[in-house]
Amino acid sequence: MAKLGAPDSIEPFIRGTMGLPDASVDDFFAHHLGDDRIDRDLLRAIADANRRWERRPGLAMRTSSSAGFP
């Protein structure tokens, strides 16, 4: 742990390395994921399509050697 440096310097280092803002996570999400920034109709359509997806065809694709999976 000593190699990481002072405890209060770890978070700023990680944020800087990852290019994250200093703001709180809640503020970041509120700013970037607000209703005015997300196509909610598209998101609902994707969720509906996922709910309708049948499990068997997906498993068949995963196990089929012709689908390019080992």
Rank of each mutant, 00 (worst) to 15 (best):
L59Q: 13
P21S: 02
A47G: 05
D48L: 12
R55S: 07
F69K: 09
I46C: 03
T63H: 11
A30S: 12
R40T: 11
M18S: 02
S64D: 15
T17F: 12
M1S: 15
L20E: 01
G68M: 07
L43I: 07
A67H: 11
M61E: 12
A49K: 14
F13N: 07
M61H: 12
K3V: 13
N50Q: 13
G68Y: 04
H31S: 08
D36Y: 05
I14M: 14
D22Y: 02
D27Y: 01
A2R: 11
I14R: 06
A23F: 00
D48F: 07
P7V: 09
D35K: 15
I10S: 03
S9L: 09
R51S: 09
A30Q: 11
P12L: 03
L20Y: 01
R40Q: 13
R40P: 02
A30V: 04
R55D: 10
S66C: 08
W53D: 14
I46V: 14
P21W: 00
D41I: 04
R15G: 00
A23G: 02
D26M: 11
P21I: 00
D8Q: 12
A49C: 05
T17Y: 10
L59I: 15
A6E: 14
A47D: 13
I46A: 07
G68A: 06
E54W: 03
F69Y: 15
D39P: 06
G5A: 07
S66N: 10
D41S: 10
A67C: 08
P7D: 11
D35S: 14
P70H: 06
G5M: 07
L33V: 01
L59W: 11
H32V: 00
A47R: 10
I46D: 07
N50L: 15
R55P: 02
T17N: 06
R56W: 09
R56P: 02
F28V: 01
A67N: 12
A2H: 09
S66Q: 12
F69R: 14
R52G: 03
E11L: 15
P70S: 06
D36C: 08
G5C: 07
D35Q: 13
F28S: 00
E54V: 01
G16A: 06
M61F: 15
D35H: 12
W53E: 15
T63Y: 15
R37C: 09
P7E: 10
R15H: 01
R55H: 08
R62P: 01
K3Q: 13
F29P: 00
I38M: 08
D41K: 13
T17H: 09
R52V: 02
S66V: 12
H32D: 02
R44S: 10
A6H: 12
S9E: 13
S65G: 14
D41C: 02
M18N: 05
F69P: 01
I10A: 07
A47N: 09
A47F: 05
